[in-house]
């Protein structure tokens, strides 16, 4: 009888600790695999590609690499000589059109006073229209003058936002093509974090959930919240060929890699002394609000 009790005790003690081990193991697995966090996070920022609005030689670059600039600060200057000349040309044309208008106006008033004996009715009527045409020519010259002025203004390329000049490669003597980006400006107020979460974790993430951001290899913790979740990513398994037919990748049936969906995190709090750099790697840990 005593042996039986001892046997039951032995079996139940062993089974109990096995059960506890299984439960704890399962809890750890769920916590590790199914909680919304990722090591695959990136600090991002909006970058403005600065291009000149007019073409020409770059005569002067007034910023240094990685320099902070305020909105409206001069970045570089394009050779303005040609644009000065076109402005002068436009001014001259404007002057000429003004004189022409005065001439036509004079003729018109004079002809209006003459009678049919001296001038044909056709000529008299036309003179009014000729004046109007001269007025239109003057307006055109005026617009061209303003255009030339604007072009001259735009030879000075200015910063559209507060931020840092990055990877400055433009040098005096380069030729700047209108519209071709010459330098990058990182918007100071635009830093955010992209967390690339596995697709099966997305249902655990909600808008405005508080987020903890840890920069790679440091103890620096940033606070933020979920701002938005991407609503689409590329289907990598289905590119189209030149004949527009589907080209479906054969994939393994057993092992599937979860795809990553970007979740945009707004940064609320940066510890003093921490300078963020766009492109930094970080871990993103979402703490679901509920």
């Amino acid at each position: 009888m005593k042996d039986l009790y001892k046997h039951i005790l032995r079996i139940s003690l062993t089974l109990m600790i096995v059960a506890v081990a299984i439960i704890l193991g399962h809890m750890l697995w769920v916590r590790y695999m199914d909680s919304p966090w990722t090591r695959d996070g990136r600090v991002r920022a909006d970058v403005v590609n600065i291009a000149s609005d007019v073409s020409g030689l770059v005569t002067e670059v007034v910023v240094r690499d990685n320099q902070f600039v305020k909105k409206g600060d001069l970045l570089f200057r394009i050779d303005a000589e040609r644009y000065h000349h076109s402005l002068e040309e436009a001014e001259a044309r404007l002057q000429q059109r003004k004189i022409t208008l005065a001439l036509k106006r004079g003729q018109s008033t004079r002809r209006a006073m003459l009678d049919d004996q001296v001038i044909s009715r056709e000529d008299r009527e036309d003179s009014d229209l000729v004046t109007l045409a001269a007025k239109a020519d003057l307006d055109q010259a005026l617009a061209e003058r303003d255009h030339a002025k604007l072009n001259l203004q735009r030879t000075e390329v200015r910063a559209p936002v507060d931020g840092w000049v990055s990877n400055l490669l433009v040098r005096p003597g380069d030729y700047a093509q209108a519209g071709a980006a010459k330098l990058a400006l990182i918007d100071q107020k635009s830093y955010w974090v992209y967390g690339y979460f596995e697709e099966h974790k997305l249902h655990l993430i909600h808008l405005n959930d508080p987020v903890e951001i840890r920069l790679l290899g440091t103890d620096i913790v940033l606070k933020g919240h979920v701002e938005s979740i991407a609503r689409g990513i590329t289907d990598r398994d289905n590119p189209t060929d030149v004949r527009l037919l589907a080209n479906v990748n054969p994939s393994f049936n057993w092992v599937r890699l979860a795809q990553r969906v970007p979740v945009r995190v707004h940064i609320d709090e940066i510890p003093a002394g921490v300078e963020l750099v766009a492109g930094m790697t970080c871990s993103v840990i979402v703490h679901p609000a509920s």
Binding site: L13, T14, I17, V18, V20, A21, L24, G25, L28, R31
Partner: peptide, 21 residues
């Protein structure tokens, strides 16, 4: 007082590891 000692030891280690985790 233990039935299968190896099983018990494995479970004991698992418990410790998971609790720390």
């Amino acid at each position: 007082f233990i039935w299968y000692r190896a099983l018990f030891r494995l479970s004991l280690f698992s418990c410790l590891f998971c609790a720390l985790g």
